[in-house]
């Protein structure tokens, strides 16, 4: 798993880390049962704060993506296999919506901004978790 963080983007680092792990699960780069690097190793490899890595792992556990086993590290959960099916269905929904928007004359940037604004509003109302980046 190759992780890359953008320190100056303004998006909290623990959210970036969570998004990248989730993305790796969605693409199949990480599969259920796979072990993540220890928090300490990841902190040293990425030269980032160990507390921030710990926060990302705890949140991922809270969302049911990883399981933290005391002493042996973090593992991708079984339930993520189901999640990747949901993602595939969602892709079809997004595809048809985007096609309609493009047909009505909107540009890619305009569509992206509209979607991001909607996500940001939901997040403020507490109906959405994650960075939405």
């Amino acid at each position: 798993m190759i992780l890359r963080l953008n320190q100056s983007s303004g998006i909290p680092l623990y959210l970036q880390l969570m998004e990248q792990v989730k993305h790796a699960v969605e693409t199949g780069a990480l599969q259920s049962g796979d072990q993540l690097p220890t928090m300490r190793k990841l902190a040293e490899d990425l030269v980032m704060n160990p507390n921030t890595v710990a926060r990302a792992y705890r949140e991922l556990e809270h969302e049911g993506i990883v399981e933290l086993k005391h002493g042996s590290g973090a593992f991708i959960c079984e339930s993520t296999a189901r999640k990747s099916k949901v993602t595939k269905k969602a892709q079809a929904v997004v595809q048809s919506a985007v096609e309609r928007l493009v047909a009505s004359g909107l540009s890619g940037d305009e569509i992206r901004r509209l979607v991001e604004n909607e996500l940001a509003l939901l997040r403020d109302e507490g109906k959405l978790q994650g960075s939405g980046s």
Binding site: Q7, S8, M39, R40, A43, E44, V47, M48, N49, P50
Partner: peptide, 23 residues
């Protein structure tokens, strides 16, 4: 980072290098 992770040491550092603080 390694010292903070392995020795449970608190690190207080002053800087005007925003990038390293952010890191």
């Amino acid at each position: 980072v390694a010292i903070a992770a392995s020795q449970q040491t608190t690190i207080f550092f002053s800087s005007h290098q925003l990038t390293e603080v952010e890191q």
